[in-house]
Structures are given as C-alpha cells and as structure tokens.
Computed example of a mutant assay.
Amino acid sequence: MIMKGVRLFFGVFVLLLFSCGGEVIPKPEGMLRLSYPVPKYKEVSSPCHYTFEKNEYSELEKAKKNKKCWYNLEYKKWKATMYISYFEINNNLDSLLRDAQNLTHEHVIKADGILQEPYIDVDNKVYGMFYEVSGDAASQSQFYITDSINHFIVGSVYFKVKPNYDSVLPAANYLRNDMKHIMETLRWK
C-alpha cells in the first residue's frame, strides 16, 4: 500500500513537472482609455460687458464672491472649475497685468515649465496671454484678456484633486482647449 502511494506521488510529480513546459505568454498590458466628448459650444448671455462661448458640458454659475460679472464654469464630470473674473480698468491696467502675471508665476515652485502664448485679435480689440503650466501645479491653464482701455478678464482652471500632472493631463488638455475657445470667442459689448 505504501508502494502504491509512493508511485502515485511520483506519477503526479512527473505529470506536474512536464505539464509546465509550454511557451509562456505574458498578459498584454492594459491601456487606460479616457474618452472625452466632442465639445459643443453656445454663447453665454449675461448682463456683463462681454460675451463668450462655453462648452455645453460645463455649467455656468455666478461666483460666490458676489462680484458683478464673475463666473465659474463647473466641469463636474472632471472635478474642475474654470474661474472667470472681470475687472473694469480705472487707470490700473499695470497693476491688473502684474497681478495676473503673478498669479501664474506663483506656480513656478511646483511647475516644470510655463508656456506663454500671446493672443491678439485686432478686429475685436481682444489682447491677452494664455499660460500653460506643466508639472504638479494647482492650475494647468490660465489667461488674461483685455481691450487695454475699459475691460480686463482673468481666467484659471483648478481641479478639486491633489495636483498630479500625469493623472490630470488628459482632462487638463480638454479644458485648455475650452479656455482657448473662450479667448477666441470673447467679444466686448
């Protein structure tokens, strides 16, 4: 009986030993697929001194700071907010420009780089700067727009998550394109 058990043990051992001899095929790597809808834009109608087109996938809300003509575009699906702040120019264009530039350059500590892209639309008297911030900064996109005489607007995108550039990059790129579209469609009243 012991001999029968030993033979059974060796038989199973040999079977297991030779059954593992096939070619090893590694499991294919999984790729994260993030899909974003094609943006659909419509003009924002407001009592303010400006209009622009916003993505229909965002919700326009009046800013909580109770400032006239300050708005938030909420991108709930991506846990992000685009803040749009309006200022009237009263011999303070220099300080408004300095504040807008300082807001962007505060991110230098965490940023890997800041790309500056001037924006000029002479026909509609819209001049400004778009900033793309790379790295683990709190805001990946910012802009300012002015007519250099009466109106000044600052915009920035913030995510409601801890900054991790690799994780937010696809959403940041989508919102960057929305921000550029706002700049391109902004008109003064």
Rank of each mutant, 00 (worst) to 15 (best):
residue 1 M to G: 10
residue 1 M to L: 12
residue 1 M to K: 14
residue 4 K to S: 11
residue 4 K to M: 11
residue 6 V to W: 06
residue 9 F to R: 03
residue 10 F to Y: 12
residue 11 G to Q: 06
residue 13 F to R: 00
residue 16 L to W: 04
residue 19 S to P: 02
residue 23 E to C: 11
residue 23 E to R: 11
residue 24 V to H: 15
residue 30 G to N: 09
residue 31 M to T: 12
residue 33 R to W: 09
residue 34 L to P: 04
residue 35 S to A: 13
residue 36 Y to C: 01
residue 38 V to M: 08
residue 40 K to R: 14
residue 40 K to A: 15
residue 41 Y to M: 03
residue 43 E to G: 01
residue 55 N to T: 01
residue 69 C to N: 06
residue 78 W to Q: 09
residue 84 I to Q: 01
residue 86 Y to K: 06
residue 88 E to V: 04
residue 90 N to H: 13
residue 91 N to F: 07
residue 94 D to G: 07
residue 94 D to H: 08
residue 98 R to D: 14
residue 98 R to T: 15
residue 100 A to E: 05
residue 101 Q to V: 11
residue 103 L to D: 14
residue 106 E to K: 15
residue 108 V to Q: 11
residue 112 D to N: 15
residue 113 G to I: 04
residue 116 Q to P: 00
residue 118 P to K: 08
residue 119 Y to F: 15
residue 121 D to V: 00
residue 128 G to R: 02
residue 129 M to S: 07
residue 129 M to K: 08
residue 131 Y to E: 02
residue 134 S to K: 14
residue 136 D to C: 07
residue 136 D to H: 07
residue 137 A to P: 00
residue 138 A to S: 10
residue 145 I to R: 02
residue 150 N to W: 08
residue 150 N to T: 12
residue 155 G to A: 08
residue 158 Y to A: 10
residue 158 Y to V: 10
residue 160 K to A: 13
residue 162 K to I: 11
residue 166 D to V: 09
residue 182 I to F: 04
residue 182 I to R: 00
residue 183 M to Y: 04
residue 186 L to E: 02
